[in-house]
Design a protein around this nucleic acid. Structure first.
Lengths: 158, 158
DNA sequence: GCCACGCTACTCGGATACTAAGTGTCCGAGTAGACCGGG
DNA sequence: CCCGGTCTACTCGGACACTTAGTATCCGAGTAGCGTGGC
């Protein structure tokens, strides 16, 4: 999994702490985590395409949350960055070679291996979808007191 | 996720159908699924290193199951092929930049993002560990009747 | 006829190229605000 | 003093290099069985 996911989640949380009053530019977000600005911008563009963020161009432009954090799940972010298709891709190798002798039943019977892998991946996606960014934000604040104030202060009170 | 996982699972199932009487070479397994033999051999080597398979060199050599299929989980195969480390790697970007002002608490407080992602990935691994290759084999036989006979016949009765 | 030796064919195993996805960077299009001149 | 136009600075957005992981291949080390020669 690419590291863009980590960047995206942290940036969304930061946007949540700073509030939607005014957009935050890529440069400031990148400076906050010491990330390459241009590449971070690429990831944020993916979030915009997914509707998680909204972007405003021009001077004093930047990124804003597209909807409140409790309406954004971890699955939304992962899907936006990593793409919609799941990790395990069944290439139907069972139909090649020895399985080729019976082409008739090839398309009706599901691949047992694929089914088993999909079951696990579904559990993964369910666990991701069950967690909203609002919950993650609360957990972070619970671990570190005064976190929101600290962030707002660092970014120049948002 | 690499396609080697699919190859590995199918090969293990085939070895289960053929029985452990005599080892099966890479060439025959590769011919059964029309896969590149040398590369498949590489994946099988990974399974041997993980203890899932045992290899015997020399003429009439090949691969055998290291233990019965009901003692091999999907997680075992995935870990053997993809490696032990999990997909999401926390690089602790929260400590860089804005978070650097408080280095003291950096190592005590866990990263909320990492915790959330790990929770999902744990669900994934649990779902993988809950399924043994024996169960997958039974499922495949349920979908396609006479499957074992068909496989044994294609491989020259094992 | 039986046994020991050597030989060949076959297999795994790791070292070596090739390809694609992920990572990182740069430059152009567009906009909002600021500055300046005129009324 | 107020308003409109222009101009600049800043931002997003996509197009262009670079690096690492994954894919594919080849060749060497080692072994089991078979053939051959000797006893």
């Amino acid at each position: 999994m690419g590291e863009g996911v980590e960047w995206a989640v942290h940036c969304c949380l930061t946007l949540g702490w700073l509030g939607d009053d005014q957009p935050v530019s890529t440069a400031r977000l990148a400076a906050g985590y010491e990330l390459p600005p241009a590449y971070l911008n690429k990831q944020l563009q993916a979030l915009v395409r997914a509707g998680i963020l909204t972007s405003t161009a021009g001077a004093r432009g930047g990124f804003r949350l597209g909807r409140p954090l409790d309406k954004i799940t971890l699955l939304d972010v992962v899907t936006a960055i990593e793409g919609p298709d799941e990790a395990f891709q069944c290439t139907e190798i069972r139909q090649r070679g020895s399985g080729a002798e019976s082409p008739a039943r090839s398309f009706v019977a599901p691949c047992a291996v694929s089914t088993a892998m999909r079951k696990a991946e579904l559990a993964y996606r369910r666990a991701l979808a069950a967690q909203t960014l609002a919950e993650v934000k609360v957990a972070a604040e619970r671990h570190v007191p005064r976190l929101e104030d600290s962030v707002r202060r660092w970014y120049g009170r948002g």
